[in-house]
Design a protein around this nucleic acid. Structure first.
Length: 124
DNA sequence: TTTCTTACA
DNA sequence: TGTAAGTA
């Protein structure tokens, strides 16, 4: 019952083999090798990947998810939030707000530059 | 057919 | 993340 290959896990979690290798590279999941070199996974990997996908969907980065490694085999979505988890989420939110502010600023500059250059309608 | 690694877009 | 290449 540990003869699950990458394609199986991908299908069971709605991801792609490419993403799974990427998660492994990031140290989020592990795998063993069959004699032919193919990766072999245990069923717990499916739960793990679903949790990873959940955290990514909520807005965290792969790097953030690494901090959740201890909880990755449980019910990350339902379990009571840990202090560290909340900290990471708050930091990610702050980072997003920073990026948003920076983007808004460059957008406003481009907008006004375009306006003083003749306006959106008088460009051709 | 599926998977593997590496590398580029 | 997708895709290409050449394998096993």
């Amino acid at each position: 019952m540990g003869r699950v290959r990458i394609g199986d896990v991908a299908k069971a979690t709605g991801t792609t083999p490419r993403a799974l290798r990427h998660y492994e590279q990031a140290g989020l999941i592990t795998s063993e090798r069959a004699s032919n070199g193919y990766r072999v996974y245990g069923e717990h990997t499916v739960v793990r990947v679903r949790n990873i996908r959940h955290l990514l969907a909520v807005g965290l980065t792969l790097d953030d998810v690494r901090a959740f490694l201890p909880c990755l085999d449980g019910d990350v979505a339902g379990a009571p939030p840990s202090a560290q988890g909340l900290r990471i989420a708050a930091d990610r939110l702050a980072a997003l707000n920073d990026r948003l502010a920076a983007l808004t600023e460059t957008r406003d500059r481009l907008e006004s530059a375009l306006r003083s250059a003749g306006g959106p309608g008088g460009l051709r």
